[in-house]
Design a protein around this nucleic acid. Structure first.
Length: 807
RNA sequence: GCCCGGGUGGCGGAAUGGUAGACGCACAGGACUCAAAAUCCUGCGAUCGCAAGGUCAUGAGAGUUCGACUCUCUCCUCGGGCACCA
C-alpha cells in the first residue's frame, strides 16, 4: 500500500490557496527576495517535464527563503504572443486569442497540480491589452528618445513563414521557427538601437552575479574589439573617394595585397569596373545567399577583381580592389584589407587567385601557412624591428597624423530588428501621416488594440495581415488631423518578455507600468533562472530595456537581475529531444497521477546536476516514490518514542544534514540535497526510537522539496500552523565536529590503512601512532622514511626513499 | 573553422588536490507469501586470491605534486552555440 498522495496533495493545495500565504506583501517589514523563473510560452503541447524541473527548483529555493524569514515574491505569468500559437491557429482555424486562452487554462491546471508556491494574484499575460498597453508605451519612449527607428535594409527573409527574421532568429541558415532556408530581402523595418548600449551591457556584467559561462557568452555576443579604421583612397581620375576598412592588425598593413569589399557595399557601383557584367553576375548570386551561407567556414572563399585600384596609405602601393561574398556589410564597414601572409582566410584566398603573399611579421613560415600570431615587424619601412603590440600603437598614431586612420572600437552586436509582419503580436503604436511623417500614437490612446479579425495568415506580399484591415489602418493623424495610416507591423515576442518581471511588482496599475516606490522595494530580481538558449536573446534584450528605463528614471536600478543561473534541458529516455514526432514525450500529468507531485518534483531534483542536460528515466521515478513511502512510515516510530524517555543521542548527522541541505539549496545543488535527505532518513529509520524534535527537523528539511507530504506529516503531529511558515532549522557547528575521526595512513600517497583518532591530534602523535600500526610497519619494512606529510583532520603520508616497488 | 560545456561501474550520478564510485536505479541471493506483487535484509567496478589482502581502473597520452577524477599541455570523442568579425 502506498501513501495516499492523491488525497493529501489536493487537500493541501486547497489549504494553501485559501490561506494565501504565498502572496508576497508589498513594503513588508521582512527583507525581500524576488525569485524569478522564465515565464512559459503556453504552447498546445501542454506542460513539459522540463518546466517542472526549473519551477520545482526555484520553488524549493522560494520555500526555503520564506522559512528563513524573507518576504518572497515568486510570480508566474504567460508569454503568449508569437508564431507557434499563430501557426497552430492557422492550421486549426481557431483564433489565436482563443487558442491562447485554452492553452493557458491547461497550463494553469497542470501547474496547480504540482503545488508550486507561485503568487497567483500577480499572474500576467503579455497578450492582455492591459499588459501590452505598457509594452507599447515603453516602445513610444524608445521612439521619443531616438532609439527606435526605421531603416530600409537587407534582412533575413523566410520564404515559408513569409516574415523578416532577426539575425538572432536564424539558426544554421534556417528559420528558427519553421526550419525553412532563409534568403535576403530588403524591407523597411523598425529597429531598436541596442548598439548604443553595447559598452554598458558589456561593462555592467562586472556588477552582476551571473554564471561565468553566461557572462562569457554575452561578452562574445557583444564582441567588443579595439582596432583601427583606415582609409584607402580609390585611384580614379575624378573626385577623391576612400574605402574605409576596419582591422585589429594594423601591424600588418605593409603586407596588404588587396582590399576586399562586400557585394552590397555602397561603393561597388562607383568603382570603374573592368567587366561590369561579370561583376554584376557575381554580386547577383551573392545577394541571394544568406549571411550564414555566404560566410560558412568550410566553404571555399570566392571573389572577383573589380578592375579598380586604391592606394595603401602606409607605403603608397597600388592595391587591387576585389569583391568577396565572405565580407559582411554590416560589420566593420563592409570592407577588409587582405594580408595573406598573416590571416588564414586571406592566405587561402590569395592562393586561389594568385595574389602576392608578403611577409611583414616574422616568426612563421609563410611558404606553408599563414602566420597569425604576433611577432617582430619586417618589410615595414620605419617600423621594422618593432614588436606587433608596439607597432599597432605607433602605426595608428602615424596614420592619425596623416589623417589616414584612427583608433576605433567595433562591436559585433547589431541593432535589434523589431518589426514582424505578423498578426499575433503587439501592434507598433505609430501612425504614418503624409504631411507629418511618422507620428507616435498619443499615450492616452493606448493600447492600440489588436483588431479581432477572421484572417490572420501572413500575406504573400510580406506585409502584415493587419494591412488588409482598411477600417483599422485608415485613421486620423494625431498631429494635423488629416488622413493617415497605422503602422501594420507588430512587435517580436521578445518585446513582452523584456520587461515582464517589472509588471509582477504592480500588475494592476492603471497609471504606469509599475509604481516607482514598489519598484524600489522589489528590484532588482535577486535570482533569475532560465535556459541557456535565452542568454543572448531574451537576457540581453531585457537588460537593454531595463537600462533604458533606468536612464529615463523609471526604474531604480541599472541592472534588472542581480543573479542569473541556468538549468539544463530534460531530454527523452532515448537521449533525444522530447517530440511528438519521436513519440517519446513524457506527460507530467501521468507521473502526478501515478506517483504524486511530490515524487515527480523530488525525482526531477534528484535526477542530476541542475545546470546540465539530462535524460528522463521512468525507472528512476520509482526510487523517489519508495523514498516518500518510507518517510510516510517513519511516523510510526514517533508513537513509541513519545512514551519512553531516553537519553539524547548526539545528533551529528542531523546537524551535518542541516548544513549540507541548506548550502546545497543555496548553491542549486538539488541532487545532493535530496541525497542527504535520503541518508538522514535511513538513519532515522534505523533507530529504535525517534525523538520528536529530530523528526520535526527532518520534516522541515523536506518541506521545500516535497511540500505536500511534509505538510501532512507535520499537521498529523497536531500542529495547526503550516510547516511552510515554520523557521528553517539552524545547525549547531559544535555538533558537526566529531570528537574522533578516521585518520588515513598513506605510504607514498597510497591509501594503506585508517585509524580512529581524536580531533586535536598533533603531527608527532599521529606519526608515532601510525608508525606503530602493524600494517604500516609491514609496508615500511626495509624502507627509509624520508618525509612525513601530515594534514590535520585528514591524513598522514609517509614518503620513502625507494618507491620502485610501489609504482 | 572559432567559442562554451561534457566524457567516472550495467545506468543516472557523488567526490574540485588527500580512502574513487556517496545516493538512487537495474541486477543477483535471501526473508515474508499457497503464489505473485509490494516490502524488508544482503551482495553488487575489473582482476588475482580459500582468506587476509594485493593489483588495475575516472576518454587517450604526457607533465606538475609526497599525493591528480580534480591543476597544466597535446590528442580523441560527444553535446551546445556561432555572425569566417578582419
Amino acid at each position: 500500500m502506498s501513501y495516499p498522495f492523491q488525497k493529501i496533495e489536493k487537500k493541501w493545495q486547497a489549504f494553501w490557496e485559501k490561506n494565501k500565504f504565498y502572496q508576497a506583501k508589498d513594503f513588508d517589514k521582512k527583507p525581500k527576495k524576488y525569485i524569478l523563473i522564465e515565464f512559459p510560452y503556453p504552447s498546445g503541447d501542454g506542460l513539459h517535464v522540463g518546466h517542472v524541473r526549473s519551477y520545482s527548483a526555484l520553488d524549493a529555493v522560494s520555500r526555503k527563503k520564506r522559512m528563513e524569514g524573507f518576504n518572497v515574491l515568486y510570480p508566474i505569468g504567460w508569454d503568449a504572443f508569437g508564431l507557434p500559437t499563430e501557426n497552430y491557429a492557422i492550421k486549426k482555424g481557431i483564433h489565436p486569442s482563443i487558442v491562447t486562452k485554452r492553452n493557458i487554462a491547461i497550463f494553469k491546471k497542470q501547474l496547480k497540480s504540482l503545488g508550486l508556491s507561485f503568487d497567483w494574484s500577480r499572474e500576467i499575460n503579455t497578450t492582455d491589452p492591459e499588459y501590452y498597453k505598457w509594452t507599447q508605451w515603453i516602445f513610444l519612449q524608445f521612439f521619443k528618445h531616438g532609439l527606435a527607428y526605421q531603416a530600409e535594409m537587407p534582412i533575413n527573409w523566410c520564404p515559408s513563414c513569409k516574415i523578416g527574421l532577426a539575425n538572432e532568429e536564424v539558426i544554421d541558415d534556417k528559420c528558427e521557427r519553421c526550419g525553412a532556408g532563409t534568403e535576403k530581402r530588403k524591407i523597411k523595418q523598425w529597429l531598436l538601437r541596442i548598439t548604443k548600449y553595447a559598452d554598458r551591457l558589456l561593462k555592467d556584467l562586472d556588477t552582476v552575479d551571473y554564471l561565468e559561462k553566461i557572462k562569457i557568452q554575452q561578452q562574445n555576443w557583444i564582441g567588443k574589439s579595439e582596432g583601427a579604421t583606415i582609409k584607402f583612397p580609390i585611384l580614379m581620375t575624378s573626385d577623391v573617394i576612400n574605402i574605409e576598412i576596419f582591422t585589429t592588425r594594423v601591424d600588418t598593413i605593409f603586407g596588404v595585397t588587396a582590399i576586399v569589399i562586400a557585394p552590397d557595399h555602397p561603393l561597388v557601383d562607383k568603382l570603374s569596373v573592368k567587366d561590369r557584367d561579370e561583376v554584376k553576375k557575381y554580386i547577383g548570386i551573392a545577394a541571394k545567399k544568406s549571411d550564414i551561407e555566404r560566410t560558412e567556414a568550410e566553404k571555399e572563399k570566392t571573389g572577383i577583381f573589380t578592375g579598380s585600384y586604391c592606394l595603401n596609405p602606409a607605403n603608397g602601393e597600388k592595391i587591387p580592389i576585389w569583391v568577396g561574398d565572405y565580407v559582411v556589410a554590416a560589420y566593420g564597414g563592409g570592407a577588409v584589407m587582405m594580408v595573406p601572409a598573416h590571416d588564414k582566410r586571406d592566405y587561402q584566398f590569395a592562393k586561389k587567385y594568385n595574389l602576392e603573399i608578403k611577409e611583414v611579421v616574422s616568426g612563421g613560415n609563410i611558404d606553408s601557412e599563414a602566420y597569425v600570431d604576433y611577432g617582430v615587424l619586417i618589410n615595414s619601412g620605419r617600423f621594422n624591428g618593432l614588436k606587433s603590440e608596439e607597432a599597432i600603437k605607433k602605426i595608428i598614431e602615424w596614420l592619425e597624423k596623416k589623417d589616414s586612420g584612427k583608433m576605433t572600437i567595433q562591436y559585433k552586436m547589431r541593432d535589434w530588428i523589431f518589426s514582424r509582419q505578423h498578426y499575433w503580436g503587439e501592434p507598433i503604436p505609430i501612425i504614418h501621416c503624409e504631411k507629418c511623417g511618422t507620428v507616435p500614437v498619443p499615450e492616452k490612446d493606448l493600447p492600440v488594440k489588436l483588431p479581432f479579425v477572421k484572417k490572420y495568415e501572413p500575406s504573400k506580399t510580406g506585409e502584415s495581415p493587419l494591412a488588409a484591415i482598411t477600417e483599422w489602418v485608415n485613421t486620423k493623424c494625431p498631429k494635423c488631423g488629416g488622413p493617415a495610416k497605422r503602422e501594420t507591423d507588430t512587435m517580436p515576442n521578445w518585446a513582452g518578455s523584456s520587461w515582464y518581471f517589472l509588471r509582477y511588482i504592480d500588475p494592476k496599475n492603471k497609471k504606469s507600468f509599475a509604481d516607482f516606490k514598489k519598484l524600489q522595494y522589489w528590484t532588482p530580481v535577486d535570482l533569475y533562472n532560465g535556459g541557456m538558449e535565452h542568454t543572448t536573446l531574451h537576457l540581453l534584450y531585457s537588460r537593454f530595456w531595463h537600462k533604458f528605463l533606468y536612464d529615463i528614471k523609471l526604474v531604480p536600478t541599472p541592472e534588472p537581475y542581480a543573479a542569473r543561473r541556468s538549468h539544463g534541458m530534460v531530454l527523452a529516455e532515448d537521449g533525444r529531444k522530447m517530440s511528438k514526432s519521436f513519440g517519446n514525450v513524457i506527460n507530467p500529468d501521468e507521473i502526478v497521477k501515478n506517483f504524486g507531485a511530490d515524487t515527480l518534483r523530488m525525482y526531477e531534483m534528484f535526477m542530476g546536476p541542475f545546470d546540465q542536460m539530462i535524460s528522463w528515466n521512468t525507472q528512476g521515478v520509482v526510487g523517489l516514490f519508495r523514498f516518500l513511502n518510507r518517510i510516510w512510515q517513519l511516523k510510526e516510530k514517533i508513537k513509541i518514542g513519545k512514551k519512553i524517555s531516553y537519553p539524547a543521542e548526539p545528533e551529528t548527522l542531523l546537524h551535518k544534514s542541516i548544513k549540507k541541505i541548506s548550502e546545497d539549496l543555496d548553491d542549486m545543488k538539488f541532487n545532493t540535497a535530496v541525497s542527504q535527505l535520503m541518508i538522514l532518513a535511513n538513519n532515522l529509520e534505523a533507530r529504535e526510537k525517534l525523538p520528536i524534535s529530530v523528526y520535526e527537523t527532518f520534516l522541515k528539511l523536506l518541506a521545500p522539496l516535497s511540500p505536500h507530504i511534509a505538510e501532512e506529516l507535520w499537521q498529523q503531529l497536531g500542529h495547526k500552523k503550516s510547516i511552510h511558515l515554520e523557521k528553517w532549522p539552524e545547525y549547531n557547528s559544535r555538533l558537526i565536529k566529531e570528537e574522533q575521526f578516521d585518520l588515513v595512513i598513506q605510504i607514498n600517497g597510497k591509501f594503506r590503512d585508517k585509524i580512529s583518532v581524536s580531533q586535536g591530534i598533533t603531527k608527532e602523535e599521529a606519526t608515532e601512532l601510525s608508525a606503530s600500526q602493524e600494517k604500516t610497519q609491514n609496508w615500511l619494512k626495509d624502507k627509509k622514511v624520508i618525509k612525513t606529510i601530515f594534514v590535520p583532520g585528514k591524513l598522514i603520508n609517509f614518503v620513502t626513499d625507494d618507491t620502485s616497488f610501489e609504482t
